[in-house]
């Protein structure tokens, strides 16, 4: 199945792997934003997850523990953000940006001396006959376990947000923290939990880059993936299924433009590589034109909550 010299099956398989880091980070950020908090520190949390996940995996020789380490590290950095914005009531945008800068610097410091080491290999999940199915086999059934975990998390996040009481409370806090507070819900505690979850997801997404996608540690390895994750949340209008689509679209375009070049295509790649950002800008313009509510942005997104007010 070749189109323009590109094998569509391998392209789809690559696309799914390439989109895992941004999918994980975007899912985490979606939950955070649904609770009414805007954390712009995704990039910082991802790269901390990438370096700690890498170090832990190399030390223990076990990539699964590495991913856990990445999640814990991401959550730990998110805890700093939670402290700043929820306890000390600092500005969320500024704190988030600071978190990114801090994470990039700290990861570079921690990563000293870890260059050029190969992490333990994560193998594809043996799905036996499933992976021999034509087309579907290579596209869907020949990946590592994190790919399936990320799919499961999309379903889990959707189910919790839409179908459970906990999800309802979380959304209530994001829509109107005053009303939720009046009903007796612990706004601050719920938001902190959401922030920690977001940090853990970003950390795992980062660890996926350093342990599976690139398998190595180099400074600045995430190179902007966190920002794309933030854009995807907006693009997906805060819906988990659309986050999956957005991650595939953004991940797919970045893979596609390289494949097109390798296949000797004459389509100017510059247009293709800028298209995800153009789409994001269009979506942002649409949202800010006053239809943001219809797009699903939580009403209290980015607002500071204090019980006395």
């Amino acid at each position: 199945m070749d189109i323009g010299g590109i094998n569509i099956i391998t392209l789809l398989a690559t696309l799914i792997v390439a989109s895992v880091p941004i999918l994980m980070a975007a899912l985490g950020e979606l939950v955070v934003e649904k609770s009414g908090v805007l954390n712009l520190g995704v990039e910082g949390m991802m790269i901390i997850g990438a370096v700690i996940g890498f170090v832990v995996a190399v030390q223990t020789g076990n990539p699964v523990i590495g991913f856990l380490g990445g999640a814990v590290a991401g959550a730990a950095l998110a805890a700093v953000f939670a402290l700043l914005t929820q306890v000390l009531l600092a500005n969320q945008v500024a704190s988030g940006l600071a978190l990114t800068l801090f994470g990039l610097g700290l990861s570079s410091l921690i990563g000293q001396g870890w260059n050029g080491i190969r992490p333990p290999l994560t193998r594809d999940v043996p799905l036996g006959p499933l992976s021999d199915i034509p087309v579907l086999g290579p596209v869907l059934f020949s990946h590592d376990w994190m790919v399936y975990a990320s799919f499961a998390l999309v379903v889990a996040v959707w189910w919790v947000l839409r179908r459970t009481r906990a999800g309802l409370i979380l959304r209530a806090v994001g829509e109107s923290h005053d009303a939720a507070h009046a009903l007796g819900y612990k706004v601050r505690r719920i938001r902190m939990a959401a922030i920690l979850f977001g940090g853990a997801m970003a950390g795992m997404g980062g660890a996926y880059i350093s342990l599976i996608r690139v398998p190595q540690w180099t400074d600045g390895i995430t190179s902007g993936a966190g920002w794309i994750a933030l854009a995807i949340v907006v693009f997906a209008s805060w819906k988990p299924w659309r986050v999956l689509l957005g991650a595939w679209l953004f991940g797919g375009i970045s893979v596609l433009q390289l494949s097109l070049q390798a296949a000797g295509s004459r389509i100017p790649v510059e247009y293709l590589s800028m298209s995800p950002y153009v789409i994001t800008i269009l979506v942002l313009v649409f949202i800010s034109s006053g239809r943001g509510r219809a797009m699903g942005a939580p009403a209290d997104l980015g607002k500071t909550f204090h019980a006395s007010r």
Binding site: A18, Q261, A262
Partner: peptide, 26 residues
């Protein structure tokens, strides 16, 4: 086959570029 990464240093993109080439039989 030539792939332009438009970066001197972007590990994820460089890895993807190598993958794209290898998929072409390089």
């Amino acid at each position: 086959s030539i792939v332009w990464a438009y970066s001197w240093f972007d590990p994820a993109k460089e890895a993807d570029a190598a993958r794209a080439l290898i998929e072409q039989g390089v």
